[in-house]
């Protein structure tokens, strides 16, 4: 019977069954199917291989494939769990799961920590914080004097580094976020609750039937 399916759907490398991904994330099966529609669009935007390359990620975020950005690089690297230079479908869904409104807050806090731990030492260090502030200023064309930058970084660091050992660990980070919950506001994407409306997955649904 295998030869009957001349229109068998082509699955990209890294494709995982929606039921498996739904079991591991806050998404329902139909939401994962809708995410696959979005994923196909993003992953074929420049290189038609069904994998999200960094240029495609930058294009989706900034409408510009060449716009480098420290924070977008960090997000890409965290999504690219296998570290093979592309975001596969399973990686895309699991990582976006953290941004779901129903995802545990602890996961959002942990993700933000890893994002800001630029050199992956297990701590956010003062130099990293300063580097991120400078990157933000550069990105937004804001100009601040060196003194003001130092003051902002120093004050924040003193507030967060309660143990005073010159680095922010995960415990200190959790405590700091609990005092400033707005810090993880961008770890929640309300869009993810309406993803099935934005990307209906009729095609995927019929493909599932076909393969049964």
């Amino acid at each position: 019977m295998g030869c009957a399916s001349s229109k068998r759907s082509k699955r990209t490398p890294g494709y995982e069954e929606p039921t498996v991904l739904a079991a591991e994330t806050p998404f329902t099966v139909s939401e994962v199917e809708a995410l696959y529609e979005l994923y196909k669009k993003l992953s074929n935007a420049i290189i038609a291989d069904g994998l999200i390359h960094k240029e495609e990620f930058q294009l989706a975020l900034f409408r510009n494939r060449n716009r480098r950005n420290l924070f977008a690089d960090r997000i890409f690297d965290l999504f690219d769990v296998k570290r093979n230079g592309v975001i596969e479908f399973g990686e895309f869904v699991r990582s976006l799961g953290v941004f779901h409104p129903n995802a545990p807050v602890a996961d959002k806090i942990a993700f933000a920590f890893r994002l800001y731990d630029l050199r992956q030492t297990g701590f956010i260090e003062r130099e990293e914080l300063k580097e991120m502030v400078l990157a933000l200023l550069h990105e937004s064309d804001l100009v601040l004097s060196e003194d003001v930058v130092e003051t902002i970084v120093d004050k924040t660091f003193t507030d967060a580094d309660t143990k005073g050992d010159g680095k922010i660990d995960t415990e200190e980070w959790k405590e700091f976020v609990s005092k400033h919950p707005s810090l993880i506001k961008n770890m929640t994407l309300p869009y993810l609750k309406d993803i099935t409306l934005a990307f209906p997955s009729f095609v995927v649904a019929s493909e599932v039937e076909e393969s049964d």
């Binding site: 989706a60 975020l61 900034f62 690089d73 991120m132």
Partner: peptide, 26 residues
């Protein structure tokens, strides 16, 4: 205007690179 009392993490969390909502724009 960025006051010197601004929380540095608050500032960096406004980065466009961290705003994934643009992934969903058609």
């Amino acid at each position: 205007v960025v006051p010197a009392t601004m929380n540095a993490f608050e500032l960096i969390s406004t980065s466009q690179g961290l705003n994934l909502s643009s992934l969903f724009e058609k």
